[in-house]
Design a binder for these strands. Structure first.
Lengths: 203, 203
DNA sequence: GACGAAAACGAACGTTCGTACTAATTTGAC
DNA sequence: GTCAAATTAGTACGAACGTTCGTTTTCGTC
C-alpha cells in the first residue's frame, strides 16, 4: 500500500512540527506545504483534524518507545534498569529526539485543560508512562536492590518531575547544566534508597 | 481614566482564558465576546496580538506576585521563608489561582520553541523566579539554617521541578495526592540539608 | 450644558483555518 | 495492457483569525 507509506511520512513530519508548534498549532495547510502535498490529499488520510492529532500523538509515542523506552528495557531488571530508564530519558532530551523538546511534556501542558479525545489519549499515555516507572521501581525492590519502604508512586512522581524540570530548564531557560542537575538529583535520590550490594562472596 | 480600568478587566479575563487555552489559543474575538466588547474596541487597547499576549503575561505575573510570592516573603528570612515559598506554591495550585493550572508552566512549555518577544519575556520572568528561589536558599544558608555545601542553583532546580511535576500530576493526571507527594518530597529534601536548630539555651 | 478628547463600535479587509465535494491520476492484481 | 480501486489534486465553502478605518458614543473639564 502506498497510502500507508505516505501516512507514515506525514506523521513523521507532524510529530516534529507539533513538538515545535503544539498540537493545536499543527496546521493541515502548513503540514501539506512542507511535504509538497495538497491540503485535501493530506486531509483524506485522516478525515478530521482531531484524528490527525490523535495519530500524531500515537506516532510520537511509538517513536518514544522505540528510541528510549525499549532500549532501556535491555538493562537487567532491578536497579540497573531503573537507572537505565533515567539515563535514557535525559539522553533523549540531549539527543533532541523531538526538535521542540519532550513531546509529551508539551502536549500534557497544552491539553491539561482541553477536554476531548486528544486529552484523554494523552492522559492514558502519561498514566502508562508513570505506571511503567512505578513498575521498574517495584521490580528493583523485588530484586532486593531498593528499600522496601519506598513508595513507588512517590518515587515515580519525583523522578518524572525531575525529567520535566530538566526539559523546562534546558529548553526554555537554556540552562546548559540542566541535564547534569537532573542527573545529580536522580542519582542522589536513588542512591539514598539503594540497598547496598552484598560484598563479593558475602552471601 | 476609564481606559485603564477597562484594560485591567480585559487582562483579568485574558489571564484566565490563556491559562485554559494557551497564549496562542487566546483569541481577540472570543475575549471580546466574553466581555461584551467589540473586537475593534478591545483591540485598540493593545494594537497587536503580540502586545496583548505580553500584557497578559505581565498581568499573570502580577497576580502571581501579589497572591503567592509577596505573602510568602512575610515569613522570617531563612528556613521559614523557604518553606513558606514552597507551601505557598503548592497552595497556589490547590486554590486554583489560575483556572488552567500554573500559568507560567503552561506558557513556558508553549513558548519554549517559539522565538519572539513573548518567549523572551517569559524566559526573563522564569529566570527571575528561579533566581528568587536561589536567593531564598542562599539566605537560609546565611542564617545558618541550611548546610553551606548545598548548591543553591541545584536545589532551586529540584524544588521547581517538583512544583511543575505537581502541577502536571494534579491537572492532567487528576492525581489527587499530587500535592501531598510534592509536599513530602520538598520537606524530605529540605530536612535532609537543614542545620539542626540549637537546643534552647544551648547557645 | 458645551466642547475636545478618549474610548468603543461596526463594517470590512485579506488570509487562513478545517472541511466537503468532485475530478484526475496513480497503483497493484490479473 | 486493462481495469477497478486506492490515492492525490483541485476547487469551493463558511467561519474565524488579526487588523484597519471611519463613525459614534461616552467621558472629564471648563
Amino acid at each position: 500500500m502506498k497510502g500507508e507509506r505516505t501516512r507514515q511520512s506525514i506523521l513523521e513530519r507532524a510529530v516534529d512540527l507539533a513538538s515545535l508548534e503544539g498540537l493545536e498549532g499543527l496546521t493541515i495547510g502548513r503540514l501539506a506545504d512542507e511535504l509538497g502535498l495538497s491540503k485535501s490529499g493530506l486531509f483524506a488520510h485522516f478525515g478530521s483534524k482531531e484524528e490527525l492529532q490523535l495519530a500524531t500523538v500515537e506516532a510520537a509515542s511509538q517513536r518514544y518507545i522505540a528510541e528510549i523506552f525499549r532500549p532501556a528495557l535491555q538493562a537487567p531488571r532491578g536497579y540497573p534498569r531503573l537507572i537505565a530508564i533515567c539515563d535514557a530519558w535525559l539522553a533523549y532530551i540531549k539527543r533532541g529526539v523531538f526538535p521542540g523538546g519532550c513531546f509529551f511534556a508539551a502536549a500534557s501542558f497544552e491539553f491539561d485543560s482541553r477536554p476531548g479525545a486528544v486529552r484523554d489519549f494523552i492522559r492514558r499515555l502519561m498514566n502508562d508512562w508513570i505506571g511503567a516507572l512505578e513498575r521498574a521501581i517495584r521490580m528493583a525492590q523485588d530484586e532486593g536492590h531498593l528499600e522496601r519502604d519506598v513508595d513507588p508512586a512517590q518515587l515515580a512522581f519525583e523522578l518524572n518531575s525531575l525529567f520535566f524540570g530538566a526539559n523546562f530548564a534546558y529548553h526554555l531557560r537554556n540552562d546548559e547544566q540542566a541535564l547534569e542537575k537532573a542527573d545529580r538529583a536522580v542519582r542522589a535520590r536513588l542512591e539514598a534508597v539503594r540497598v547496598a550490594a552484598p560484598a563479593a562472596g558475602a552471601r
